[in-house]
């Protein structure tokens, strides 16, 4: 995605010629498109039957068929709803705990060791316990996703609050900002860039964990399509579901980045020159 931080990129002095600007994204497409085309041709030429690794045309047909019957939309909506719920909870709790532990040394000493210990547990390991506690339906799935989202958000917010420049805070003090004004006018804007990064890594983990959650037994969702495809020997359906994951995951990430971009135009950092996400 080159669209996320374009104002800063536009400030680049050297203007790319039209051709160069066009050629750069195309360069990245050569390998995947080449491989796909090559495989397609290989299957057409009879070099392989393409049963286990379906050629792009078969995947496309499967995708279209799933979309036509509405299956794809139903499963995607179920998965999206789980991610949204888990992400919402994970972000809320992670932001709150991250903010208070970043702000208060006492609370950091009190809470952080426990949270760090919990973080050391591979989150998938919670699945059996969550199923025992919360049943195999939606609650346990959403909680698992929330756990996955929580840690990057918590760590990101805590680190961001702790590393707010003391000199900038002092400017706020010199202008006699009250506690809430200090948070609103100094701390929030100062942590925003790191917060957006934390949200995006949280979201990435949310997408990872929804697959694990749906593997543990679901009757709908893209993860179900994966399991179903495996059990019934339909590799094209598996790849179609994978493609759907990629597209939706990337889109949600882009939405977060794009929503934050107008608030981050001031950023003065190395990566802002040519943001490649």
């Amino acid at each position: 995605m080159t669209t996320t931080v374009e104002p800063a990129a536009a400030g680049q002095s050297e203007r790319k010629s039209g051709l160069a600007r066009f050629a750069r994204p195309v360069l990245g497409l050569i390998v995947p498109v080449g491989l796909a085309l090559g495989w397609e041709l290989a299957v057409r030429a009879g070099l392989s039957n393409g049963r286990l690794v379906p050629p792009p045309s078969v995947i496309f047909n499967t995708f279209a068929e799933l979309a036509r019957t509405g299956e794809l939309q139903r499963h995607a909506a179920a998965t999206l709803a789980r991610v949204a719920a888990g992400f919402g909870i994970g972000v809320a709790v992670g932001t709150l705990l991250g903010a208070i532990t970043g702000y208060s040394l006492f609370l950091r000493r009190l809470l952080d060791p426990t949270l760090q210990a919990l973080r050391a547990i591979p989150s998938i390991a919670w699945i059996p316990l969550f199923i025992l506690w919360l049943g195999i339906f939606e609650t346990s799935k959403v909680v698992l996703i929330a756990v996955g989202v929580f840690f990057p958000v918590y760590l990101g917010v805590m680190g961001a609050v702790m590393s707010v420049d003391r000199k900038i805070v002092e400017v706020g003090r010199a202008f006699r900002l009250s506690g809430t004004a200090m948070v609103r006018r100094i701390l929030l804007p100062a942590v925003l860039p790191a917060y957006v990064i934390a949200l995006r890594s949280g979201l990435g983990l949310g997408w990872m964990f929804v697959v694990a959650a749906e593997f543990m037994g679901a009757s709908e969702g893209l993860g179900y399509l994966l399991v179903d495809g495996q059990q019934l020997g339909k590799p094209a359906q598996i790849v179609a579901a994978i493609v759907a994951f990629a597209v939706i995951g990337k889109t949600t990430d882009w939405i977060v980045a794009a929503a934050a971009a107008p608030f981050l135009r001031w950023e003065d950092r190395f990566g802002a020159r040519s943001e490649e996400t």
């Binding site: 000199k167 900038i168 002092e170 400017v171 100094i186 804007p189 608030f263 001031w266 950023e267």
Partner: peptide, 9 residues
């Protein structure tokens, strides 16, 4: 201060 300490945002 010695540095401008402008708020970058």
């Amino acid at each position: 201060f010695q540095e401008p300490r402008l708020l970058p945002w």
